[in-house]
């Protein structure tokens, strides 16, 4: 028995409404949409993930906070756990953009990366 689910695509700024026909988790058709849209719809249906950007405390830096982000989309349902962990993380300046701040966070295989260089104050 196939069903239809509407998904707002967030892959690009366009923000298409995708109409996904699927049987359970098996996708039959997505329209309209591009390749990236289709991939997004497939994920969103089964395992929604988001890029997460936030900050962690940094000691001795130009600013008290270092912006960080997930190396890959992170399971949406676990974002609340993620913010709990990152709230307590503190790193030391200087740090380079792309440096791994937390490896394999919460066992998801996703790393937390520094979004920028932060010089020592």
């Amino acid at each position: 028995m196939s069903e239809k689910t509407k998904i707002l695509c967030i892959t690009c700024p366009k923000g298409c409404t995708l109409e996904v026909s699927h049987e359970g988790q098996t996708i039959l058709e997505v329209k309209p949409g591009c390749k990236r849209g289709h991939a997004y719809a497939a994920n969103e249906l089964v395992n929604p993930r988001r890029m997460v950007a936030t900050t962690v405390n940094i000691r001795g830096g130009l600013h008290p906070l270092l912006p960080v982000y997930t190396s890959a989309p992170f399971p949406k349902g676990r974002i609340h756990e993620l913010r709990e962990v990152l709230r307590k993380v503190e790193v030391q300046a200087p740090i380079r953009m792309g440096a791994v701040v937390v490896e394999d966070i919460l066992g998801t295989g996703v790393n937390i990366l520094a979004s920028r260089d932060m010089a020592q104050a």
Binding site: V56, N57, H80, K88
Partner: peptide, 8 residues
């Protein structure tokens, strides 16, 4: 408060 000074 400070951005990180919170408890869930």
């Amino acid at each position: 408060r400070k951005t990180k000074a919170w408890e869930a």
